[in-house]
Write a protein that binds this DNA or RNA. Structure first.
Lengths: 256, 256
DNA sequence: CAGTGGTCTAGACCACGTG
DNA sequence: ACGTGGTCTAGACCACTGC
């Protein structure tokens, strides 16, 4: 705040939300950065302006910008690379691919993966799906089913629900052609960046259809993983129900 | 560094490990703090010295101490409370109790929990246990089995393995008397603070004994959770194999 | 009111990546 | 050589807690 002899963070020109109880400057800067990300001012994989530049733009010190970026980096929305700049996180890039997939081979060797699209439909949202995605039951959703194999062994059966409006051009053909993580496709083809997800996990006996597709005995124990993925602004954009075969794989998790 | 006109972080008096490639000052401070925690200089629940005090002790600026503490707080080893001080994390305290338990009721209402000790034995470590706990197979371990119930419904069957040396006085009687999380007991009775854990999760059919104890049909699908817990310095101190009934509960997880 | 952590600034220098 | 993020410092003031 160059024009302000006291360092009062609330006195400067109106930077973000105007009134509000009290929010530290760096939080306000963080919100502004989030808005820019959401607005698509900087695309996934691209670099954002340098800290000095942002400091000038927002009329704050570099340290304040830094703290805002620190938090966004901690949340994996941004990626700092010393000497190069700060980049918008992306689901392309080998390093963060399958960022949301916690299923891991017991022996540690990463397997060859293959995907088979079983079905793509556009339907009115079932109530539970509508509730999870914050939509009305009259809204249209895309329902996508696929089978993932690792080292040729069928391992994950996914049942995926997406808001129809945001995923207009999504067809079985475009999916069949595509190689790589779905989230990368969502990002580059539909401008939807998944930033965070919540999962609910339980054990479930395989039904007849799942057993057949996953090539296990009916009633075999499967891991059922229900995931809701969110974009910027905590807007839910995907509901995914997966059934995992955990014979030679396990779901890994770290607790702090 | 008051006595050093240049801000060279490597030139001052030898603060931590001496040589080593290069480590930022605040990382060295962090190591020193970790050593103090490990050594028990400050006990769980207690406050550590103030930032100014630590800055004076280590001959660095408050900002550097702050950054070290920031990281320890992010890892949940320390807890900052504005206006009061910085405290050593503890498994007592309602807020962080069951910090490592991710099983959550589907309806959100937190249940009444009860614990029943089934068995406590001291045996030579089986090979897999020895490997997980970084021990020799000739070493003695404590093996503890218990049944957790939520709202009177048997839900978790735990099979727990602990290094015998560190848990000398652990008996069935002392456990039966104790109420509250095991990790809190480990902390106050044995000076072992669990700081971090890794879990491997899979779906498993209930064997006859588990089915009987958990009051489910044999071959019912159960969540099998294998957890290794670590103290300071990444030393594994517990192997825990749990079987969870996920009829009215689920394992929740957040992905970033 | 004093003491604690929390925010903000300004400026110096370091490590890294690229030309 | 230059620009980027990373570290470190010193000092000011704010917000919260408890005496």
């Amino acid at each position: 705040m160059s024009d302000n002899s006291s360092n009062d963070p609330a006195s400067g020109p109106d930077r973000a939300g105007s009134s509000a109880a009290y929010s530290p400057l760096y939080q306000q800067i963080k919100s502004l950065l989030l808005q820019s990300l959401d607005r698509g001012e900087w695309k996934p994989g691209e670099s954002i302006p340098s800290e000095v530049e942002l400091a000038a733009r927002f009329q704050v010190s570099q340290g304040t910008v830094r703290k805002a970026i620190d938090e966004l980096a901690a949340e994996n929305l941004l990626l700092r690379r010393q000497g190069k700049g700060t980049f918008v996180a992306t689901h392309h890039e080998a390093k963060v691919r399958f960022r949301f997939l916690r299923l891991t081979p017991d022996d540690g060797k990463q397997p060859v993966s293959g995907s088979q699209i079983l079905d793509v439909r556009r339907v009115k949202a079932p109530v539970d799906v509508a509730r999870a995605l914050d939509m009305r039951a009259s809204d249209v959703v895309v329902n996508l089913r696929r089978l993932l194999s690792f080292d040729q062994v069928p391992t994950i059966l996914d049942d995926i629900w997406l808001p129809g409006a945001a995923f207009k051009g999504l067809t079985a053909e475009s999916l069949a052609r595509y190689r790589g993580p779905l989230y990368a496709l969502f990002e580059s083809e539909f401008g939807v960046s998944m930033v965070r997800a919540e999962e609910k996990i339980r054990a479930k006996a395989a039904g007849p259809e799942a057993a057949q597709l996953l090539q296990v005995e009916p009633n075999s124990p499967l891991l059922q993983v229900e995931r809701v993925s969110y974009t910027y602004g905590d807007r839910p954009m995907e509901l995914r129900r997966g059934l995992y075969v955990t014979e030679r794989f396990h779901y890994r998790n770290n607790l702090n």
